[in-house]
Computed example of a mutant assay.
Amino acid sequence: MYVQHTDEIPQTRPTPTSSGHEPTTVERGSFCTAHCSCGWSGPARRSRDRARTDAAEHSAS
Rank of each mutant, 00 (worst) to 15 (best):
R52P: 00
P14E: 01
P10G: 02
S61H: 09
W40E: 05
Q4I: 15
S61E: 11
H58E: 10
G20E: 11
Y2W: 05
R13C: 09
D7T: 12
P14F: 00
S18N: 10
C36V: 03
C32M: 10
S18K: 02
T33L: 06
T53I: 13
A56C: 09
D49C: 04
T53Y: 09
H35F: 10
E57I: 06
A55S: 03
S61R: 11
H5E: 14
G29I: 05
G39W: 04
R13P: 15
T17L: 06
R48P: 01
C36G: 14
C38A: 07
R46A: 13
V3N: 08
E22H: 09
P23G: 08
G39R: 01
R48S: 04
S30E: 08
D54W: 03
P43C: 15
R48I: 11
T33E: 13
S61V: 14
A60D: 08
G42I: 02
A55D: 05
Q11D: 10
D49A: 14
C32I: 09
P16Y: 01
P43L: 14
G42Y: 01
R50M: 13
T53R: 02
Q4Y: 11
I9T: 10
M1V: 09
C32D: 06
P43E: 13
T53A: 14
R52S: 09
R52N: 10
R50F: 09
R13A: 09
S47N: 12
T24A: 04
G42F: 03
H5F: 14
T53D: 15
R52V: 06
G42A: 03
R48V: 11
T33D: 10
D49R: 01
C32S: 04
P14R: 02
D54A: 04
T24C: 06
W40Q: 02
F31N: 11
G29D: 07
H21M: 01
Y2S: 05
R48N: 07
P23S: 09
T15G: 15
M1F: 04
H58T: 06
A44K: 07
A44E: 11
C36N: 13
S37K: 01
S18M: 09
T25M: 04
G29V: 04
S61C: 14
T12V: 05
D49E: 15
R13N: 15
G39S: 01
G39K: 00
T25W: 00
R13M: 03
T6H: 13
H58K: 06
G42T: 03
G39N: 03
G20A: 08
S41T: 15
E8Q: 11
S47P: 00
P23Y: 00
E22Q: 14
R45C: 05
T17M: 06
G29Y: 03
I9P: 14
P10V: 01
A55I: 02
S61G: 15
R45T: 02
D54E: 13
S61A: 13
E57C: 15
T25G: 04
A44G: 15
S30W: 05
H5R: 05
A44R: 12
R46T: 03
G39C: 03
R46V: 03
H58P: 04
C32Y: 11
S47Q: 13
H5G: 12
E27L: 08
A34G: 02
T33N: 06
S19P: 00
E22G: 15
Y2G: 12
E27D: 13
T25S: 08
S19D: 12
H35I: 10
D49S: 07
E8C: 08
T53M: 10
